[in-house]
Design a protein around this nucleic acid. Structure first.
Lengths: 190, 190
DNA sequence: TATATAATCTAGCGATGCTAGTTTGTCAAT
DNA sequence: ATTGACAAACTAGCATCGCTAGATTATATA
């Protein structure tokens, strides 16, 4: 039965094209420009076809966000060098996190601001949503008694720094100094 | 010329009614339900009247947010008790900040997530936008060399905690422990 | 009282997300 | 090969949105 396999393959390829188109448009023109009509035009199918792949627009944003979580996790893991000290690793992960947020603002928005229908902290939560947290926990662990809580707080600090700077409410020039202060929080030393 | 005074008074009263209606609807049904048509119905005027008060919908959100910044600043200042130690003051302000965020999620959203057209860090920035920062700086100052940077980082940590918890990505039960960790960041001691 | 100006309204434009109902295509059974 | 059943995709349109042009009413001035 190679025919039905071809069909499911073509179907998943079309789904990928939708996700890629959504991401491309969002990164170029912002999420407000990612409309069902525009996506339909991009993949050269009519609009209702999109609803056979995704329940609604939010789920398309969610699919892009899911990719983003995978990429963020990879970036954070790549920032952890074996030759570094524990302290340097925390700093490198923090810097990598903020680099990601500022380099891909639309992606970051999908992951953390827009409604996506993604469900966290559940049994069916996809691994991408856990991996980034895991990478942060890895570098936080040497300093923490309660690793989960410390990682949550570390993550929150980074997220806050990203969001406030992205909205122009704190001074971009002082990013490095703020990271230093966050370091003190987790490492307990200046 | 009491007539024109009455007119400007009535006009500003109508503007207040718009803001109050927007806030009320947002807190009850969410910002998506705050439509121009619904606001017009609420104040019993036609839709174009709203555009004689505000340039667009975002500016209405901004007007509500501005109120929120004033109220947040007042809450933070009220949390600073003269009898407390410097350390307790930081903790009380942090707790008050998160209490505000969770007690008024729609307001917090207007202040920090939605587009508002508000302009920060400019010469014409209204005082409400500075006061909250000032309150935080007051309690951070005893611990910091660079007060502004330390306050920015403190603020970012609180904002991150608020946002991640609001989106269900960190555990509500561990809020107090996370605040303790933030305290260590600013006070340099456990 | 006539006229100019301001205030407000009606009506509608161009979008949006989403869907009902119809047409087209693709199989299996006759 | 023909027919009928089912799946896939399309056309067309609904309700709603932010926003605005142009008509209409009220108000103030001459």
């Amino acid at each position: 039965m190679g025919i039905s396999e071809r069909k499911t393959r073509e179907r998943s390829e079309r789904e990928r094209r939708i996700i890629v188109a959504a991401r491309t448009i969002a990164e170029r023109d912002g999420w407000a420009s990612v409309t069902i009509r525009r996506l339909a035009e991009e993949i050269e199918y009519s609009q209702p076809v999109l609803y056979s792949h995704f329940e609604n627009r939010d789920q398309i944003v969610g699919a892009v966000a899911l990719e983003g979580f995978g990429e963020l996790a990879a970036m954070l893991r790549a920032a952890i060098r074996p030759s570094s000290t524990s302290r340097e690793r925390v700093e490198d992960v923090a810097t990598a996190y903020l680099d990601f947020a500022f380099a891909r603002p639309a992606m970051y928005e999908a992951m953390f601001v827009l409604p996506t229908g993604l469900r966290f902290a559940r049994s069916d939560t996809p691994p991408q949503l856990r991996d980034g947290f895991g990478a942060m926990a890895t570098v936080i662990a040497p300093f923490a008694q309660d690793v989960d809580t410390a990682t949550e707080t570390f993550w929150a600090a980074l997220h806050g720094l990203a969001e406030l700077e992205r909205h122009g409410r704190i001074r971009p020039a002082f990013r490095a100094q703020r990271i230093t202060l966050v370091m003190r929080m987790v490492s307990g030393q200046l």
